[in-house]
């Protein structure tokens, strides 16, 4: 299964595909959730929402 397939499935609302993308991009989301050298749980939640929004809005 290629990245395109996963992305399309996620766009269509496939939960497993979304989880695959979340797993894949987790390190990036965690890195984007560090404030003053500390991991911010609330911001991480927001970043997860950002990923979901990005999946929906990204134009293939």
């Amino acid at each position: 299964m290629t990245f395109r397939d996963i992305l399309i499935r996620a766009k269509l609302g496939d939960e497993t595909a979304k989880m695959m993308l979340l797993e894949q991009y987790k390190p990036m989301l965690i890195k984007g959730s560090i404030l003053n050298g500390r991991f911010d749980e609330d911001l991480y939640q927001e970043q997860c929402l950002v990923l979901m929004k990005a999946i929906n809005q990204f134009i293939i």
Binding site: Y25, M28, G32, L43, E46, Q47, V50, K53, A54, F58
Partner: peptide, 10 residues
């Protein structure tokens, strides 16, 4: 695309 969004959100 996602990286930009993550930075913006932060």
């Amino acid at each position: 695309y996602l990286l930009a969004a993550v930075h913006r959100r932060r």
